[in-house]
Design a protein around this nucleic acid. Structure first.
Lengths: 108, 108
DNA sequence: CGTGTAAGGAATTCTGACACG
DNA sequence: CGTGTAAGGAATTCTGACACG
């Protein structure tokens, strides 16, 4: 049923590597977290861990920032995208539910 | 033409995380490198970096070791697999070459 | 052979703060 | 607001070695 947790989403990359991958300074990366643009894994008393997905988001953020977009606005765009994503998923589930209701459960 | 460098092959994971992911100690992981079972990225004066692919290989190694297989034999198995893999790729390329030779290059 | 451990040092990461604009 | 930097400490990683079996 589930897709495997997938390489893209696993939070395994340390901030130094993320910095290399994105071209952002660690300072910037931590700041974007503080502004709630990015959500690394934060084990108690442990170092931040990022996923490839996070890296891609950071690259998008970097591009937006170059265009002069404020972190505040970037956050709103991200929230909007997430919301749309959520809605798409829910619709998909509902459709599946309909189908199951009519054809899925066959007790003969 | 190329597949993207792909999340699976990018060497971005530090040894501590690999240890968590595989259940192996750092000592073991370094030792398997010494025995040439695994090849992390080793930047000059930098820390080892592993890929998800490496993590999977380490898990296989761990399983073999539990069965009592020696590192020496595991290396041979790995080399054999790699060789087969290589041959498959070459055959594929040759086939492609044949096809191109007959149908691919059309100068009218 | 495969792995544990203590040792000492180097590089990494963390937080909170001051700075500039 | 967004980012740089120096500061001090904590956690991570590295290597070479001794140990056991």
């Amino acid at each position: 049923m589930d897709h495997e947790p997938s390489y893209k989403k696993r939070k395994v990359i340390t901030i130094g590597v993320v910095s290399e991958l994105t071209g952002l300074t660690e300072r910037q990366i931590r700041y974007y977290e503080q502004r709630k643009l990015i959500f690394p894994e934060r084990p108690e008393r442990g170092n931040r861990k990022y996923s490839f997905s996070d890296v891609e988001r950071l690259i998008e953020i970097a591009n937006k920032r170059e265009e002069g977009v404020r972190t505040h606005e970037i956050r709103q765009e991200i929230m909007k995208k997430n919301k749309e994503e959520e809605e798409r998923k829910i619709k998909k589930q509902m459709l599946r539910g309909q189908i199951n209701a009519r054809f899925g459960i066959q007790n003969d």
